[in-house]
Design a protein around this nucleic acid. Sequence first.
DNA 1: CGTTGACAGATAATGTACGATCTGAAAGCG
DNA 2: CGCTTTCAGATCGTACATTATCTGTCAACG
Lengths: 230, 230
Amino acid sequence: MDQTAPHFDSDLLDPPEAGSIYQAIRDDIVNGRLAPNERLVISALATRYGTSTNPIREALQQLRGEGYVVFSYNRGARVRSLDEDFIRDITEVQALIEPYLTELFVELVSDADIVRLESIQDEIEELNFADIYRHSALDTAFHRTLYDRHYNRLAFEQWWRNREIMGAISSRFPYSLSRRTAVLKEHRELIAALRGHDAPRACEVIARHTRGSGLHIVEHMRAARHRSQN
Amino acid sequence: MDQTAPHFDSDLLDPPEAGSIYQAIRDDIVNGRLAPNERLVISALATRYGTSTNPIREALQQLRGEGYVVFSYNRGARVRSLDEDFIRDITEVQALIEPYLTELFVELVSDADIVRLESIQDEIEELNFADIYRHSALDTAFHRTLYDRHYNRLAFEQWWRNREIMGAISSRFPYSLSRRTAVLKEHRELIAALRGHDAPRACEVIARHTRGSGLHIVEHMRAARHRSQN
DNA sequence: CGTTGACAGATAATGTACGATCTGAAAGCG
DNA sequence: CGCTTTCAGATCGTACATTATCTGTCAACG
């Protein structure tokens, strides 16, 4: 079973060495090694990734087009700052896309799919948020099972990008107890809806799931902001 | 001081000269001067826009991130090919975003907004598709009136990008008679729904409008493909 | 005679280096 | 204390070097 790592191709073939700088920078952003709003100095990145400046400049421009990086003229690039408003916005877009992607999956879901989802979910519950990175990987696998085979690659890529951005920020916060129980409950609810081929219910659950995830992040951000205002 | 500055027609916005190459290339794509699937040769573009290669390379990378351009390693860039599947995909995403954006507008619509929409619509009907470019500008103004003030800039930008891409392809086809009547009818229907603050109806109309627009393009593409297969 | 395959030159993408501004901030001056 | 000057560091544009791919010719072969 090819359990795919969080490795996602924007090109079909990974060029031997080419887009790897883009990949590396993007990974560093979504994993928090390059923090939101952090300045991205070209020469520093060039030495960091062991190349000259031009590949860095091009990678940053691509990331700019994807929304990970912002530029000011003659002042260089920064990692996009992820404030509460932006998380709210991205969450609402996800709450549109995910039910849309789910809707088709309800049509074409097979028994094997259900088994796979349940096995992932079993593992999630067994792990019980002990290892956050492992949990994140499992959660990603769960959702990708739903969306991977959708014909609409544009929507899928949009969803994936947004998910990575949200992951970048949410990995800094712990799961609250209420959020944990909600995640588990909603996953189980979704599986039940899929088994019954109940599209409206599946879409409702996934929309609730998505909104809850965003709200959870925003609440953490708000709390952190208040703490720092003492 | 005597800098024979290549002042492109006195700019009205933005940094002096910075992203203007990006803008120029994007405009050329969405206006069809650079056709779908056309090869984008860096040196050729450099001479075309009167600059060296690096700004071109960076602009293309940004456009890649936005989905206008695709790369293959060591083989350069092409304008994204817009096949029927992609139009279908982009249409379905638009059919998610536009009702979402409309929903809020129903809440905050003012009498002045209604007046403005009606005046645009009057002009559209008076023009009656005689000048396609003018019609397109008016139609854009109509829809932007609905979405411009939405707080979700991410969704707005996504909508705008998709709209420009669809405009790039649809401008090559004439409006069929049935499509013309549908457009006018749906705009009027939308205004009526807005006046009555009827959100569900407004969303339904705009979703139908969006899907119809996409379907219209796909039908033209299909017809053109069959013609060329003789 | 037509097709295929290899080779060489041309073309273009990718990487490196450098110089010309621009920015931001600290030092100098009134 | 505020304004100007200076200056290091960074961005942005230009030029060049290095490969990789494409094209067309020509000979070998069926």
